[in-house]
Amino acid sequence: MVHDSSWSNKLFQVCNYSFLILLSLLCVVPLVHVLAMSFSSSTEVEAGLVGLWPVDFTTDAYAFVLRKSEFLDSILVTLERLAIGVPLNLLLVTLLAYPLSKEVKVFPLRTYFAWFVVFTMLFNGGLIPTYMVVKETKLLDSIWSLILPGAIPVFHVVLLLNFFRGIPKELEEAAHMDGAGHWVTLFRIYLPLSAPVFATIGLFAMVGHWNAWFDGMIYMNHPDHYPLQTYLRTIIIDQDLTVLGAEDAIRQFENINPRTTRAAQVFLGSLPVLLAYPFLQKYFMKGIVLGSVKG
């Protein structure tokens, strides 16, 4: 665009910068406030003196939270779910996307299979029947209940298959000339070319597994089996003081109260996402643009 140095344009620029900077601060200020609370002493928090910076700095809330076995156990459940769930997501998405990216003359049933997969995104059995199936397949209270029902993110299949279709056919044909079958073509040619899309899908799968809470809540009968976000729900949303720990445990730390410990857990619960965020940002824009451009 062409620069315009008129008075009205300058005024517009000033307003525009101010508005957008304010708006962007508004997106993170609530998080900063809660972070500040988590590092402040309970008396200052109760007196309403904590703004965006810790007052009477203390790490007692974190010391308390990190000693709670329920909190640590739930992190382990989430880590287990990530360790199994994310690679499985990637593998299944890849194995579905490759055949579905073929043309009909190469893979005659392609269209039927593609609709078979996409239909699950358009229509679903609803909460109760899905719950019954998970129950009948004996997954309740098992880590697999958090992994298998959602093992195939259909949207990611579509994303990857559209990317695969953009890969020049000549590469595949050349590989076939040299005697490569579909397995070799997929793993030695397509996958190395798809690193950015893979990073996108992998990061999204990680964030998805980390943030998931509903499956843990309905499929786990014992709170010991809760993943982190499900456990955090009992603390942060239900504010269940019995889960928070015995009164005695709280008295050991004079500087904490339920509000500061909740704040600490809110922050710890979002910390891995915040740490992964720079990588996420690098890839998701590409991923979204890739998904919207058809090959």
Binding site: L25, C27, I237, G269, V273, Y277
Partner: peptide, 16 residues
Amino acid sequence: LIYLPHFLSWIILGGI
């Protein structure tokens, strides 16, 4: 800054 809240769960944002 404006993309960030999208990646946090409603548990975290609900708590906030």
